[in-house]
Nucleic acid binder design. Sequence first.
RNA 1: CGGGCUGUGGCGCAGUUUGGUAGCGCGCGUGCUUUGGGAGCACGAGGUCGUCGGUUCAAGUCCGACCAGCCCGACCA
Length: 584
Amino acid sequence: MRPDIQLPCPFLMRWSEAFIPTLREAPADAEAVSHSLLVRGGFIRQLVAGSYTMLPLGQRVRLKVERIIREEMDAIGGQELILPTLHPAEVWKKSGRYDLMGDNLFKLKDRKGTDMVLGMTEEEIFAMLALELFSYRQLPQIWYQMHTKFRDEPRPKSGLLRVREFTMKDSYTLDIDLPGLDTGFEKHRGAYRRIFARMGLRAVDVEASSGAMGGSESVEFVQRSDAGEDWIVSCDNCGYRANLEKAVSAVPAIDDGPSGELERYPTPGLRTIKALAEAHPEIAAPERQIKTLVYYVDGEAVLATVRGDHELHPQKLADATGAGTVRPGRPEEIRDLLGADPGSLGAVGVEGLRIIADPSLRGRVNMTTGANTDDWHFKGVSVERDIAVTEWADLRSVEGGDPCVRCGQPLEMWKGIEVGHIFKLGTQYSEAFGVYVQDEAGVSHPIIMGSYGIGVERGMAAVVEANHDEAGISWPVSVAPYEVVITVVRADDAETMAAASMLYDDLGAAGLEVLIDDRDERPGVKFADAELIGVPYRVTVGPKGVAAGVVEMTTRRGLVTEEVTLSEVRTRLVSLITGQRGGV
RNA sequence: CGGGCUGUGGCGCAGUUUGGUAGCGCGCGUGCUUUGGGAGCACGAGGUCGUCGGUUCAAGUCCGACCAGCCCGACCA
């Protein structure tokens, strides 16, 4: 914790004067726990789908998350700046992402009719800024900002987890060579681990697909949660972890026997892998079939083939082909292309189309596949003899329980929230914008970029997903809106109130962030609200205790209460809280 | 974009089937009582029933169009 960077909001607050609109009932439209609790606790309010107001409590949490991010970014040598979020569309057209991002990009026109966009990430703008660099001696650089990003998401959902307007910490590394990029990437991996741990998350890094961001390698940070939207595959034994989009597993070999003759045979009415397998179990068990799928990648028809008992992962096909958009072919398109309906498709003898095959088909013989004539299949197919495979690429979607590629132990599959993502971009943006620097020998090189993002509000929501119970949120001290809430059991009792006020001043003087619940409410209301908003420590001051010189101290996590003398509370709280402020 | 659901005081909902003076709980205001786990009584404020159009003597209710929100599938921090 850096004492010189303080929250730009007061350390002390009287609940009676604060704007903390808690709700007794959960909003009907909130599905995710974090959504419900953040609304109920008076942290956020929705304006329209995917656009939220940060109420005072929410803003305090957000500022604390930002402070943690800022400290760790500064610690790896990051320099904070702030770039515009209103961009000329021209810039996005220059990088090619104006079309690639499609409808996700917010587009508008200014009064002169110039096409503008709202930034959804800022590789282009940082690359343009990097035009100011000329020499390897100015590198490396780590630049970052925390700024609003706009994405016209097709489906905003789950409160802060998926929105259209949000704060992103985005950073960019600028290097002269690949080892430099690796160094910057690993620095970010370390910083991200510390950031998420300090926020109270147990986010882990997993191998990921780079998608529309491009680049050679990317790692996602994922917090395990059923509210998440990403499927993660992991191995407890060796630590292998990957997003399902990227995950691979070992595939046990199949004994096909000796190679046989290719032969067409009638299969009336058999249109599914399962039906064919049941009708011809001796030759067409699912793992002995070839599944042929027609996909359009950036508008071009391709055949994608996987084993009959395997599922294709569309993102893998996109990654393998470098395509921006991938969609399954429509039945009429497929018939025009291959002359048969889905259920009788195959790649045997097909020419003039890209045929992309999953490696699990390599070397396989005696297989069965559709003959591109309805109600006919081929048997005795030798993949490499009978199919003109143009590319081999991992297309198969891993399933839970598959053996790990590294160690063979069964893989686990779980859902998680993507709280951060780091990318090795390479030179695509520097080349698009002409960002070159000279090396020692005076030779010009495009700057090698990396790009690194954290969704601030999504991070807040993930913290709630990971830190709550039936009563409400349980913030880690590091990001809690307040550190202590003093619950005055009888605000109308002069002595109780006097003791509570004294404690309030005292704790404030000790540098703690204190909220005093001085409202004229019944104790039950105050306890419930304190638990709902998740302040880590509660000090209950009541008439009986004050008379005896004691108060109760309740730890939010686990709701454990102990009696402490009035003279001891301050010391206890200071040592408990200062020890946790920096996060884990 | 495809599929499902929902729009009625700040929040949660009933009323719509069968058209006829807009209701309930919570919350809010005032007063009295109460006060260690979401109090009681009394009085009170607050609603163009998502929008527009149509049918009708009469529309929250019937018809049409549109808009918005939520959930499930294809994208991302």
